[in-house]
Amino acid sequence: MKEVRDKARQLMKGYCRVCPVCNGKACSGEVPGMGGLGTGATFAANLDALAAVRLNMRLVHDVKEPDTTTTVCGIALDMPVLAAPIGGVSFNMGGGVSEEDYAAAVVGGCAERGIIGGTGDGVPPFIIDAGFAAITGAGGRGIPFIKPWDGAELDEKLDRALELGCPAIGMDIDAAGLVTLRKMGRPVGPKTPAELSRIVAKVKAGGMAFILKGIMTTIDASLAVEVGADGIVVSNHGGRVLDHAPGTAEVLPEIADAVKGRIAILADGGVRDGVDVFKMLALGADAVMLGRPFSIAAVGGLKDGVTMLVDTIKGQLVQAMVLTGSANVASIGRHALRM
C-alpha cells in the first residue's frame, strides 16, 4: 500500500497530497480537487467525530474467527463495506489515470473481493459512461449513483442505469450543492417527497433497490422511509457541499434510533480504515462507504491497489471484531463503544 500511495501522490499532484493522515487540513477549500468546501470544517468534523469514538476492548470470550459477511439492500457482501461513488478524475484527481480505468479499477476490484463499488455522475458524459461501462464489465456488480438533475437528464440517466442489470441504483441528493456542477451551469437541486416517490417507483419497477445518499437528519431519514427508499447513506458528501455541517458520526446514532430496521442505513465521511468501519457499524450503520481511500488506491494501483485496500480494511475490521468480542456484523453495537 505504501507503493500505491506513493504512486498516487505523484499522479495526483496539485489535487491531492495523499497525506499520511487524510484530515482535510492541507486541502481545505480545494473544490474542485479532493478537499472540503470553504474552511474545510465539515471535512474535519467527519474525522473528529470518528476520532472521538472509543472502543471497549474485550478478550474473555470465544470469538476467534468473526464472520464479516452481511446482506444490505439485497446485496450479499463479504464485509459491510462499499466504495463510495466518486467521479471526475480529470478535474478532481489530476487525470493521472483515465476515467475508464479508474471506474473499472474500483468496480472490478470490489467485485473481485466480494463487496461492491459505487460509480459517479457529472457534467461531462464520460463520467457516467465510464461508470456504466465498469458495471457492465463486472457483470452488473456495481451501484450507479445519479445526481439530482432537473429536467429530462435525470430520467434519461435512470433509463440507462435500469439496463445495467445491477442490484441497486442510488441518488446522491447531497450533490445538489456541488460547486463544480454550479460552475458548469448544469441544474441540480433538492427533490420533494413527491418527486422522490416517482423516482423510487421507477427504479423498483425495474426490479432494483433505491438508495438515497446525503441524509443528515432524522426528518430526511423518515421521509426516505415514507417515499419507499430501500436504503439511505448518512453523508455530507465528504464535506464538499456545506461548510460547518456536523460530522456523520455525530448524527448517525440519532438517525439509527429513528429508522433502524425500517430501511438499510449506510454511512460515510472520514472513514479511513477497518476500525473506522467498526465504529460506524457500532453507531448504527448496516454498512459503510469509503471514498477517498478507494480513490487513492485506484489512482495509485488501479485494480490491484483496490483489492489490496479491501484486504487491508478487512484485516483491520476482523481484528477490531476479535478485540471487542464481536462474533458477526449483527452483533456489533453501541455496547462495544466507550460512550
Results as ranks from 00 to 15, higher is better:
residue 39 T to E: 13
residue 131 G to H: 08
residue 123 V to H: 11
residue 206 G to M: 12
residue 294 F to N: 13
residue 231 G to I: 06
residue 250 E to Y: 09
residue 278 F to C: 03
residue 224 A to H: 10
residue 108 G to C: 11
residue 165 G to V: 06
residue 67 D to E: 12
residue 31 V to S: 10
residue 260 K to W: 00
residue 196 L to K: 00
residue 311 D to K: 08
residue 264 A to P: 01
residue 24 G to T: 11
residue 227 V to E: 10
residue 51 A to K: 14
residue 227 V to T: 09
residue 258 A to N: 04
residue 104 A to M: 03
residue 220 D to L: 13
residue 10 Q to N: 13
residue 40 G to I: 07
residue 307 T to R: 12
residue 137 G to M: 05
residue 233 V to E: 13
residue 129 D to R: 12
residue 78 D to T: 07
residue 114 G to L: 07
residue 3 E to T: 15
residue 312 T to R: 14
residue 14 G to Y: 04
residue 187 P to Q: 04
residue 152 A to C: 07
residue 165 G to R: 07
residue 254 E to R: 14
residue 202 K to M: 10
residue 284 G to M: 03
residue 7 K to A: 15
residue 288 V to D: 02
residue 7 K to M: 12
residue 132 F to R: 10
residue 310 V to K: 02
residue 229 A to H: 11
residue 113 R to Y: 01
residue 99 E to W: 03
residue 205 A to D: 15
residue 310 V to H: 02
residue 71 T to W: 01
residue 40 G to M: 09
residue 269 G to Q: 06
residue 284 G to F: 04
residue 119 T to C: 08
residue 286 D to A: 01
residue 159 D to Y: 05
residue 332 I to S: 05
residue 90 S to P: 00
residue 126 F to S: 06
residue 174 D to F: 07
residue 312 T to V: 00
residue 310 V to D: 04
residue 312 T to N: 10
residue 307 T to W: 09
residue 114 G to I: 05
residue 118 G to C: 06
residue 49 A to E: 04
residue 315 G to M: 11
residue 54 R to S: 13
residue 6 D to T: 05
residue 57 M to F: 14
residue 167 P to F: 02
residue 68 T to Q: 02
residue 24 G to D: 04
residue 111 A to L: 06
residue 230 D to E: 04
residue 284 G to P: 05
residue 216 M to T: 15
residue 29 G to T: 09
residue 10 Q to V: 15
